[in-house]
Amino acid sequence: MSWVVLIAALVALVAAMAVVRARIPVHSVLALVLNLVCLAVLFIVLDAEFMGLMQVIVYAGAVMVLFLFVVSLLGARKEAIEREMSLLAGQEGMGVVAAGVLLVALLMAVLRQPLPAPAQVYPGFGAVRAFGAALFYDHVLVLQLAALLLMVAVVGVVVLIARRDQGR
């Protein structure tokens, strides 16, 4: 199974780089879909079957469709590369440096001490039944908060996008 993991990880990395580096927004979206699918594979390998499915359905599916819609709505225009004289002097360089510092710091944090071997999981761990039990028995509040958040988001989108002068 480890070669599946390896390939998925590598593809995820490359896709992530592509998301950031692509000049055309549609390419970014497609790379992001690839990245998310690879992550879903890794989720499943990590005994999180339900989350992997959710990742594919919700993220790589619904959300990415949303992105594609917006991209096509606005016209897949390129970034204005010609504006070389960026208004933000040194933003790119400093951004890379900050990211690098954070990378080093997080890697040190992650690699500093050895972790124990993974625990033995019971059959059905991460499956729909187990997830549902955890969500509906132990963490109902999370479910309710998620519902509330999504509703607020929907209302917010409507408020933002709706043209106020439509009724006249």
């Binding site: 992530a16 970014s28 991209v71 970034e79 933003q91 790119e92 400093m94 890379v96 990211a99 690098g100």
Partner: peptide, 18 residues
């Protein structure tokens, strides 16, 4: 690594979509 790549994208890119 994925997280930092995303972060770098936020900091470096100018397109709000990206």
């Amino acid at each position: 690594v994925l997280f930092v790549i995303g972060l770098a994208g936020v900091l470096v890119r100018r397109s709000p979509l990206v």
